[in-house]
Design a protein around this nucleic acid. Structure first.
Length: 432
RNA sequence: GUGGCCGUAGCUCAGCUGGUUAGAGCGCCAGGUUGUGGCCCUGGAGGUCGGGGGUUCAAGUCCCCUCGGUCACCCCA
């Protein structure tokens, strides 16, 4: 038989036992942290109707959907058939779109406001890179039915507290508002039709700086005047000494922005300030109102968030308000807001104790099987974890290996009878 | 989806300008010493050099395609 390539599909990964232990432990921390705020865990299917994944609300991500062919297709496809007619399902590319369907479907049984938590895999047909996979896990919390910025402030607090409980520090939270961005675009002379193209470029400021942003704006045919005005307005906004100052400047520099928008950002910033001062709150985070963060997804309508960690590739969490999305499924507008943690981007930063495997029961293959099994069973009956391992010729080396694996003690069976249980001296690499 | 770099044992890597049966360390297995521990000694298994095609008397080494990783773009958790 020919040897096949055993690596998993591109951008997906196998998970070893130690990794799974670590991930489970981290999920437990996040779930506990979120439950304290009243978020209830739900689950939705990996598959959704393709039309729901292609509504245009998912922005760029919709181009990355894995599509599923209809069952029972004729093996020979005539050339006149459009590819779209062959597909009826797709793998979800985030947890938010499925959540809005879930809400519309189960609304009668859900409280208002409803606080949802979802943890599960999503798929995007991207080119993989460090911190970017084709299958990855998102940890979402969302509040549906709360129009006020209490939702925003609470979601940020819950996320910061969840990250802190996992030892993921320091985290920098940035907050902005889609409506402020729209007003900035207008103030700089950009028409509504070209707004998103403008914002995509502005979003790159921290990466390519003003020379890069201005060059790209000119390249995209916005003209030198728009480019200069953008630099002037945004620089003045960004050079504010604090959130309050920035918002005061915005009222002046960006005349089109509604007071409600600036007031909302002020409330969120104030809530984060008070959280930071509170000895009961999470520490190890900073925050800023940043008029240049954009976020790609098309469905955001209000405040948007981005959380970063210095060692993580890209952002560690992101989200925002999407008041229009539930209405697409329900036919009635329901305000909604959510944040998603990128699990793969924090799992290596989290401080998790290595798994403890309990007692290694070292047996001799020559001994009677029944006696061996019952010796291990007695240990388990005492509420402990016991794993049978066959004795190797070099016991010294074996014990060392068992310790590295994560066993904390061992007993050697002789004639099926357990000897004295002894602790394994730690041979684990430090920092485990 | 576009472009750059990379791909040799389970892991980390060596293999000069193409030239006999492709190497090391660690790990693994068996044994010795030990006799319920980190040392030491001996032996062993394990590679169609990511896969396919081509150039050549000869390819791990050169060319093309493909798969995978990585970086940049795009975008994003």
């Amino acid at each position: 038989m020919a040897k096949l390539d055993n690596s998993p599909p591109r951008g997906t990964r196998d998970m070893l036992p130690d990794e799974v232990s670590r991930r489970e432990l981290l999920i437990g921390r996040l779930v506990s942290a979120y439950e304290v705020f009243g978020f209830r865990r739900i689950e939705t299917p990996a598959l959704e109707d393709i039309s729901r994944l292609s509504s245009g609300e998912g922005g760029e991500n919709e181009k990355l959907v894995y599509k599923v062919l209809k069952r029972g297709l004729d093996p020979v496809v005539d050339t006149g058939t459009s590819p779209d007619d062959l597909v009826d399902l797709g793998l979800r590319f985030d947890l938010t779109v499925p959540l809005t369907r879930f809400y519309a479907n189960n609304q009668a049984q859900l409280p208002a406001p409803f606080r949802a938590m979802q943890i599960g895999p999503v798929w995007r047909a991207e080119r993989p890179q460090r911190g970017r996979f084709r299958q990855f896990t998102q940890c979402d919390i969302d509040t549906l039915g709360e129009p006020g910025v209490l939702a925003e402030a609470e979601l940020l607090e819950a996320t910061l507290s969840a990250l802190a409980s996992a030892g993921v520090e320091p985290v920098e939270a940035r907050v902005n508002d889609r409506r402020l961005l729209a007003a900035i675009a207008t103030a700089c002379g950009v028409g509504a039709g070209r707004r998103s193209s403008f914002l995509v470029t502005l979003d790159k400021l921290d990466k390519i700086g003003w020379p890069g942003v201005k060059a790209e704006l000119v390249e995209r045919d916005f003209g030198a005047a728009v480019a200069e005005e953008t630099e002037r307005v945004v620089t003045l906004l960004a050079s504010a000494v604090d959130a309050g100052d920035m918002l005061a400047r915005a009222a002046d520099l960006v005349p089109g922005v509604a007071d409600e928008v600036l007031g909302g950002l002020a409330s969120t910033a104030d809530a984060l300030e008070r959280l930071q001062q509170d000895p009961d709150g999470p520490s190890g985070f900073s925050y800023a109102v940043d008029p240049t963060i954009v976020r790609g997804l098309g469905y955001y309508t209000g405040q948007i968030f981005e959380l970063r960690h210095p060692k993580a590739a890209g952002s560690v969490a992101g989200g925002g308000r999407y008041d229009g999305l539930v209405g697409r499924s329900l036919g009635r507008q329901v305000p909604a807001c959510g944040i998603s943690i990128g699990f793969e981007r924090i799992v290596d930063l989290a401080e998790m104790a290595p798994p403890e495997l309990g007692v290694a029961v070292v047996y001799d293959r020559a001994d009677e099987l029944g006696a061996t099994l019952s010796a291990a069973r007695r240990i388990r009956a005492a509420g402990r974890r016991a794993t049978l391992v066959p004795k190797r010729s070099n016991l010294r080396a074996q014990l060392d290996g068992l310790s590295r694996e994560g066993f904390t003690s061992f007993v050697v069976l002789e004639g099926g009878e357990a000897g004295e249980e002894r602790a394994l001296r730690s041979a684990r690499p430090s920092g485990g």
